[in-house]
């Protein structure tokens, strides 16, 4: 018989590389970035602390303001849009439709593709000279205009549309699983009380799925903060930097403009955004348990 210490030693030994990788690559790198955001770093890292100077400069940068504001516009519209469409599709599919499998497959397939593919497909579809606009015009509606892709004020909304297209299927799948797990007796009770189906969904069934909704919101919120590929493929942040997002701002700052200080400060702001999105979730989880 091996002693308790010996048994644990194998387990510990097996986990050691992972622990080292986690400590160095996740937490070590995170600490490095946070530290560097308070230094004089420019093209190369420099370890002289200068307080909040990088953040002062960051918040004085118009491009950062646009990126950060875009994250909220994109976040609010994408999360509400995907949640509403995904839940609606789940509810409709749940009402015993024909060809349920086909609908489910169609709603979910975009999720399997790269954001680069999604971005390019939507870029061509929304292109004013080759895509939807020219098609509608060729049908005879000569004044039809849909040029959001090249419109400074509207470009960010094309990213919202493409992201909803890619993400709604996931919400549908999660919510449908939730709907299918609702107890038969709940439906019987609403039936006995003579509550109409739609009313039963709104007042009884969906409130029961609240934990799932919160999970969906967290998943979508993390997608928002991490969104990079989609912007690169769809608008490349343009026109100008009108549809830029923080994830792209950081990568450009670090690897194109070679400004490590600014990249680090912006990355720390992204981290704060993730914490802000997660805090209510962990608070709820803790309170429930």
């Amino acid at each position: 018989m091996v002693g308790a210490l010996g048994r644990n030693l194998t387990s510990k030994a097996v986990l050691t590389p992972t622990i080292i990788a986690m400590t160095v690559c996740f937490y070590g790198c995170m600490a490095w970035t946070i530290y560097v955001s308070f230094t004089r770093s420019g093209m190369l890292p420099n370890y002289d602390l200068v307080g909040l100077a990088q953040y002062d400069r960051l918040w004085g940068d118009n491009r950062w303001h646009v990126s950060f504001a875009n994250m909220f516009i994109f976040g609010v519209l994408f999360i509400t849009g995907a949640l509403a469409l995904g839940t609606l599709l789940a509810v409709l599919i749940d009402t015993k439709v024909r060809m349920e499998g086909a609908f489910r497959t169609i709603f979910l397939y975009p999720l399997s593709m790269s954001f680069i593919v999604t971005g390019l497909a939507w870029r061509w579809f929304l292109d004013p000279t080759d895509g939807l606009q020219s098609f509608v015009r060729s049908l005879g509606w000569e004044t039809f205009e849909f040029d959001w892709l090249v419109d400074r004020d509207m470009a960010i909304y094309t990213i919202v549309i493409a992201a909803i297209w890619q993400g709604s299927g996931l919400i549908m799948a999660i919510m449908l699983a939730g709907l299918r797990s609702i107890d038969r007796d709940v439906w019987k009770a609403t039936k006995m009380d003579g509550i109409p189906t739609w009313r039963a969904y709104v007042s009884v069934i969906l409130p029961q799925l609240q934990p799932l909704v919160i999970t969906c919101v967290v998943l979508l919120a993390i997608t928002v903060v991490k969104s990079f590929d989609l912007v690169v493929a769809l608008t490349n942040g343009g026109p100008g930097f009108a549809s830029d997002l923080p994830a792209k701002f950081v990568v450009d700052a670090a690897f194109e403009r070679a400004n490590i200080g600014q990249a680090s400060a912006a990355a720390v702001m992204m981290l704060m955004a993730v914490i802000a999105a997660l805090a209510p979730y962990f608070y709820l989880v803790r309170r429930r348990s």
């Binding site: 048994r7 644990n8 194998t10 387990s11 510990k12 986990l15 992972t18 622990i19 986690m22 690559c25 996740f26 937490y27 070590g28 790198c29 995170m30 490095w32 970035t33 993390i222 903060v225 991490k226 990079f228 923080p246 994830a247 950081v250 990568v251 670090a254 490590i260 990249a263 680090s264 912006a266 990355a267 720390v268 992204m270 981290l271 993730v274 997660l278």
Partner: peptide, 27 residues
């Protein structure tokens, strides 16, 4: 094969999944 600290490792892993790549890329 749990041991003292294995829950801590689990928690650290879970939080690590949420760190945006951008925070880690350059280092």
């Amino acid at each position: 094969w749990r041991f003292k600290g294995s829950e801590l490792i689990l928690g650290a892993l879970m939080l690590g999944a949420f760190i945006p790549y951008q925070v880690i890329l350059y280092p």
